[in-house]
Amino acid sequence: MLKDLEVFVAVVEAGNFSTAARELDVAVSSVTRRIDGLEAELGRPLFRRGTRRLVLTDAGQHFLGTARNVLLELTEARDFLSSSDAEPRGVLTIAAPSAFGRRHIAPAVRSFLMKYPHMKVDLQLSDKVIDLSVERVDLAIRIGRLTDGDLVATRLAPLRRLVCAAPAYLEKAGRPGTLRELVDHECLTVSSKPTPPGWWTFPGLNRGAPLPVSGRLQCDDTETLLDAAVAGLGVVHLASWLVGDCLHEGRLVSLFSSDDGNAVKDAPAIYAVRLPGRSHVTRARLFLEHIRGHIGDPPYWDRPLPRCA
């Protein structure tokens, strides 16, 4: 099958069977048999024949991308195995959301560059979701649920949101005993409408809709909400990767001992994604191995909190 794919791509690039046969150093009849067999296996024609130059059918055009991706993946895998003892080098382009990238990807990049002195990294931090079919990015970090089935995704960590408040706030306002009591507290909320998926949402409460919490501060920047919570202005519902340090330092307190609302099927997570055929696979895999070791399992920001006396 792989040889058939090589012949198919060669014919497309050459424009006819005879030129492809010369480039492959085989007989024209061999090329014809390969294409005929491939079309028979797929159950549809890949070329419209009868013209001076072969023209791809719609099925052929669609199949061309898949064939090129498979061959590229195989070439990258062979290169990786043949050069596994060589010093990795080249440029790797990584895109990540701003806050997560600054806190967790940038430190991993620094240690990656120290480990591989001949590698270069172009780290792009932005909250804009990059279209990998347009932008030349080798690896992108996505947080949430994946919607693009064409991407190759590696799950790095679960996405857990925790209800937290500062000790100063709890001393003044009291600690809510149940999730339902959050509606009676000063809550720091995201300003975008509708409320993003997962925010202030807990299984078994409010029929799956966000709790109708409110407060004096709304903001579209999660780090600003975090700073306000640490200052004692109210309760937040933020990702554990964002609040982990504050919890361990005692600047925030997690209000509910269990991970209410996160242990659900198909829960959102943190992924590294790439587009087959558009990334430097060997370099991407090298960084994936490094970042997974850097984050750990469970991730370092979800390490157990010290027990309170």
Rank of each mutant, 00 (worst) to 15 (best):
Leu2Gly: 10
Leu5Ala: 02
Val9Asn: 07
Glu13Ala: 12
Glu13Ser: 12
Thr19Ser: 11
Leu42Phe: 03
Arg44Leu: 11
Arg48Glu: 15
Arg49Trp: 08
His62Ile: 11
Phe63Met: 08
Asn69Pro: 00
Ala77Asn: 08
Leu81Cys: 04
Ser82Thr: 08
Pro88Ser: 13
Arg89Val: 07
Arg89Phe: 13
Gly90Met: 14
Pro97Ile: 06
Ser98Val: 06
Ala99Asn: 06
Pro107Asp: 12
Ala108Ser: 15
Ser111Val: 04
Leu132Phe: 06
Val134Leu: 15
Arg142Trp: 07
Leu146Pro: 01
Thr147Met: 11
Arg155Thr: 14
Arg155Leu: 15
Leu156Arg: 01
Leu156Ile: 09
Ala157Lys: 01
Leu159Ser: 05
Arg160Glu: 14
Ala165Asn: 05
Ala168His: 13
Glu171Gln: 12
Gly177Phe: 09
Arg180Met: 14
Leu182Trp: 01
His185Phe: 13
Glu186Met: 06
Cys187Gln: 03
Leu188Met: 04
Thr189Leu: 13
Ser191Cys: 03
Trp199Ser: 08
Trp199Val: 05
Trp200Asp: 03
Gly204Ala: 08
Leu205Asp: 02
Gly208His: 07
Gly208Lys: 05
Gly215Asn: 09
Cys219Thr: 08
Cys219Ala: 11
Asp221Tyr: 07
Thr224Arg: 13
Ala228Cys: 10
Val230Asp: 08
Ala231His: 10
Val236Ser: 12
Ala239Thr: 02
Ser240Ala: 15
Ser240Leu: 09
Cys246Glu: 14
Cys246Leu: 07
Phe256Gly: 00
Phe256Ile: 03
Ser258Cys: 06
Pro268Trp: 08
Pro268Leu: 14
Ala269Ile: 04
Val273Tyr: 06
Gly277Ser: 12
Arg285Lys: 12
Leu288Asp: 13
His294Glu: 15
Ile295Leu: 15
Asp297Thr: 13
Arg303His: 08
Cys308Arg: 12
Cys308Trp: 10
